[in-house]
Amino acid sequence: MNLPMRNRILLAASVLLASLPLAGAELVEKIVARVNDRLITNSEFEARFAVFISSPQAGNNPLEAKRKLLSELIDEKLLEERAKELSVAATDEEVETAVERVKRQYNLATDAEFDNALKSSNLTREDLKRQMKNTITLQKVIGRDINSKLDLSDDTLRLEYERRKDQLYKTPDQAQVAEIVIRFDANDPAARARAASRIEEARAKITAGAAFADVAKQYSEGNARERGGALGTVSKGELVTALDAAVFSDPPAEYPPAVLLSSSIHLFHVTDRKSAGYRPFAEVKDDLRARIGDDLYDKHYGEYIQKLRREAFIKIYEPALAAAKEEKKAS
Rank of each mutant, 00 (worst) to 15 (best):
S275I: 10
I305N: 12
P189M: 00
E26Y: 13
R158N: 12
V247I: 07
R310I: 08
S43H: 08
A23I: 03
E44M: 08
R198I: 10
D272R: 11
A178R: 15
T91W: 08
A12C: 02
D250N: 06
M1Q: 02
R144C: 07
V99P: 04
I182T: 09
K129T: 05
A83K: 02
E238I: 11
Q57D: 13
T137W: 06
M132E: 12
I40G: 04
Y219L: 10
P252L: 00
L118G: 09
S14K: 07
P257A: 05
N2W: 07
R289I: 04
H300I: 06
V259F: 12
E327N: 03
S55A: 04
G229F: 09
F184P: 03
L79N: 01
R273Q: 10
E46P: 10
D115R: 15
L20H: 00
I265R: 13
A242W: 05
A253H: 10
R273K: 08
R104A: 15
T241Y: 11
E44S: 07
G302K: 04
D154C: 00
A186H: 05
T41S: 12
R104V: 12
I180K: 00
K77T: 03
E72N: 12
L152Y: 08
R198M: 14
K315M: 14
L152E: 00
V141F: 07
A186N: 01
L159K: 11
I314Q: 01
L108R: 07
L17F: 09
E238R: 13
A322S: 13
E93Q: 14
L3D: 12
P256S: 06
G229T: 08
I31S: 10
A246D: 04
A246K: 01
A210R: 09
K236E: 12
L138Q: 08
S262M: 04
Q105R: 15
